[in-house]
Amino acid sequence: MQTTRYRLQTSVINQMTIPFSIRLALKDEIPGFQQIFQEITGAIEKDLIHVDQDFSTFRPDSLVSRFQEGDPGALLESESFATVYSLAEIAKNQTEGDFDPYFNGKYDPTGLVKGWAIQSIFNHRLRPLLADPAIVGVSLNGGGDIMAATDPHSGFTWDVGIEDPFDDTMIIGKYRLTDQGVATSGFNRRGEHIKHTPSTIRQVTIISDSLVAADVWATAGIAAGTATFIHLIERHHLSGVFVDEQMGSVAFESGVMQS
């Protein structure tokens, strides 16, 4: 066994009432890196402000609010709005209706906007940094939804703890991410954007190459309830872990329940 030490660079942005943590892992010093990191943080903050302006359901002038009023402009003129609309529609089909952007009667894509935003911003602003040989890992965590990538030759991994829904000082397990997305949904803090059926399911974590897919399936799992979700896991070859009041923690890999 060999232990390598890495320097972690961290910054936090507050947008959409969510904390976004940007973390980079460096194996060597980079001259002037503090300023570069500040600029990247500033650019990501601007990206997030735009996402909020476009997709907030609390802003009457957002594209989502205008769309809800029947204004076709956003759908036909904004590439990001059309993308999110399409992703939400595909997600509804694929999750057999358990992810439903119209669950509240009005179009509300909040259940996947965060995952989409993190994935897009990560791919645009952070992933390219891995071209620098001194940077071995890049990651973006928005309120528990995470995109992470590493230099595959470095051996570095982003070790992500999965929070215990009954005790937030504890973790129930972890994933060592090399180039994946992880999303977790639950009731304990922000269930309001999810429709749900009465169930003993408390938390769903999904790992995937796509954070959009992870976010969608985590949301769908909470909405579906344990019994239905187990069928979805098998049919759609999902990987992750859910917490049920009666079953405890149940991990699954490519649709197969792990004992």
Binding site: D168, I171, T184, E253
Partner: peptide
Amino acid sequence: LPTYESEAVKAQSANITHVSGATVT
């Protein structure tokens, strides 16, 4: 995909760099 490693421990004593949970405000 990476394999899930079940490990019920105090988060502070686990060697992790991120935590995934239901959205924190």
